[in-house]
Design a protein around this nucleic acid. Sequence first.
RNA 1: GGAGCCAUAGCUCAGCUGGGAUGAGCGUUCGCUUGACGUGCGAAAGGUCAUGGGUUCGAAUCCCUUUGGCUCCACCA
Length: 885
Amino acid sequence: MQRELAKTYNPKNIEGKLYKKWLDNKYFHAEVDRSKKPFTIVIPPPNITGQLHMGHALDNTIQDILIRFKRMQGYNALWQPGTDHASIATEVKIIEKLKEEGIEKQDISREEFLERAWQWKDEYGGKITEQLMKLGSSCDWDRERFTMDDGCNHAVNKVFVKLYNEGHIYKGSRIINWCPICHTSISDAEVEHEEQEGYFWHIKYPIAGENGYVEIATTRPETMLGDTAVAVHPDDERYKHLIGKNVILPIVNKEIPVVADAYVDKEFGTGVVKITPAHDPNDYEVGKRHNLPEVNIMNDDATINANGGKFEGMDRYKARKAIVEELKKQGLLVKAEHHSHNVGIHDRCHTTIEPMIKPQWFVKMDELIKPAVEAVKSGEIELIPDRFEKIYFNWTDNIRDWCISRQLWWGHRIPAYYCYNCGEIIVSEEEPSRCNVCGSTDFKQDEDTLDTWFSSALWPFSTLGWPEMTEDLDYFYPTDVLVTGYDIIFFWVIRMIFSGYAHMGKKPFGKVLFHGLVRDSEGRKMSKSLGNGVDPLEVIDKYGADALRFSLITGNSPGNDMRFYWEKVEASRNFANKVWNASRFIMMNLEKADIHEDIDNELLTQADRWILAKSNNLVKEATDNLEDFELGVAAQKIYDFIWEEFCDWYIEMVKPRLYNSEDNSKAAALWTLRTVLTNSLKLLHPYMPFVTEEIFCTLQEMTEIKERDSIVISSWPAYNPEWEYTKDMESIELIKEAVKNIRNVRSEMNVSPGRKATVIVVSGNERIREIFTESKVFLATLSYAGEVIVQNDKSGISEDAVSMVIPGAQIYIPFADLVDIDKEIERLTKEKERLEGELKRVNGMLSNPNFISKAPESKIAEEKAKLEKYSDMMKQVMERLKSLE
RNA sequence: GGAGCCAUAGCUCAGCUGGGAUGAGCGUUCGCUUGACGUGCGAAAGGUCAUGGGUUCGAAUCCCUUUGGCUCCACCA
């Protein structure tokens, strides 16, 4: 860039180059350094199947802002990156790819399949990390991990064995959620509920040995093939006499008992429920309580099996139709009512779940969850915003055992071995050499793999070296903050928390910062099926990473969803360009000057001290906001400061000083410009890393005032008490007020500012005269005046001049022939009315004895000052009005 | 059936540890080749902060009610 600066900021020329520089210099790399405090974030590992989407862009921008902020503050900042093997998602992709080659999964061996999966990982798994780099993410890539790398694999096996030995993991035949398409069990968290329209079929079950029958209502008639009882409520007078008797299960023609169970709702349906323990979780519980047989009627693909007699081989929905027909034929179908009900579907493939009884591995949650509950209750782990605590506790309070086995090949294979000879189960990290029961040496490892989340639950410590007690682990753990969407609180956040306590004895992180979803401009979820997703890379390509990042952060608050707008990105791009151009202007002037690092405070003008104070305030506020995770608020303040205070006011004020070689305050202006710009760039850097780095470096080269080679490792601006905002800086606010008034009048009077030399006369007391005399030059520039005259009375001012009132001063523009007296009276009357309103409000407050006695003194003083100010202005306006009449 | 969130300018949203809505971006209107920037500059219009009540000297902000959207959890066959 240097000397010849482009008129507009072009991110494309710069982003790649700078990111490479950062990597080459290892600015993102963190090593244990006991002299510094660590600040650690572990990345939510994106799936290797993933393409960067807006959710990632938001999530990672937030993390990057926090990490860059802390790094500049002097922390040893580690952002630990990595990717997730995403067992089911990836396996589906591999199967799809095989299909394209005409190969079915079952046609190849497990080994061959895994080989292909690893190939796939090598080919596509790095894509997402490259995309994260494009965003500017300052991850320590030297430490990149993968949930299935050796270290993580070791950690997973260790945890499995440990939990098994402690009795927290068990294998059992229980009812689980089965996906007939993916051919695997899934956990409760992976089941989504969807309301579907269906029927409520009323069926007669004849009473054995009697003439009557009971009427049963069901939404899934096909499951009757597996009915092993009928249940009624124990207190239901209608059916009390049937308890203990048998009914005849139609079609199957089998006698099944009538049992009494409080689970039955008397009010719902007919008050009689068919019990199918093998295909319904509630019925399963009822079956356990009454020792009912469990009849599985389905194959893994949800077709009816041999237990279904003549319906064998039919798909579950076909069987449903056929069975309804059959019942109709037999005169046992009473009616079919329309009925909508919730159906469980698999969150990955949207197939309706089939509850099945299968031997699976489970984590017992009741004990493990306790420290995780306690941690959030006690505040040891803070959820931001805290309303997510309710959601958290709602889950922990109703927690059920976690089904962790999956009938998949891609994933961590369960470290359980079965003795070929006696069937003994041995859980161990390594394949056992001989059976401790029968002495056999032949073993078969469990075919199943673990739920993906089993390994991601260990992520905060497995990535730092666990199970080895490494220096890294000792130093960087517990991590500081976890940034994630609220949608994976159950899948991931809770499981990391309980795992941290279970295996490290410590929390995994101190804070969890939740963000919302990025929706499309109409508020819909971005999804593949809708085709409404916006590709962050396209946005970066068009507007730059800084613009994307900034637009994702401004104007939204933790935990709330947001909408994506191209217009917003454009506005952010414009801001980057504004910063670029302001810098370009400053550098153009610095180029010609000799500038030093320090300056004699005596040389600073009112305006200089004013902007330094404003900048100083911004440092304090933005820092506080960032500490409190109010990233959007801080961004807004930085934006406003740079654009309005710095560019629109200060730079404009300073221009005459820069253009006048005689002006002896030029050096002070340049020094102030450079200082405020540098601080602003630093504050903005976490949000807009690229443009700020480019300018920072050029600025250093130019002035030969060198802090660091990169803004990335420069120090965060500190609040400087010397630059505190003091009362006399209000003089600049006064000038601003005057300028605004003059511009307003000109605009209203349609006096084009085009170089029309006007005279502006200011009158007021000594202080006012002093202030305006010092600021004469830039007042003239900002209000497009040819000359500013400061005097202590109205002498020489023509009656038809336009007049304005600001606190303590009167300003006149003797437009002479341009002025319409009636219009002027109208304008002043409007001002009078405005002031009347203000006075009414202030007087109202101050005349309220309750306010005087109860409000804090500072507030009262504030209002009294306003009263004085407005009264004074009012007096002047009235005087002027009188003189015009 | 529980629980949460949202309702502020035409649009999208900030603000909410109580103290004048000088809110922001976009849009609209008017005026500007002002020696950094038209991805810009200046000016303006536009809001009874969803409803009703309460607490308070004072409420967009805290509490409750109602209405209208959204979301999560939950086994009603």
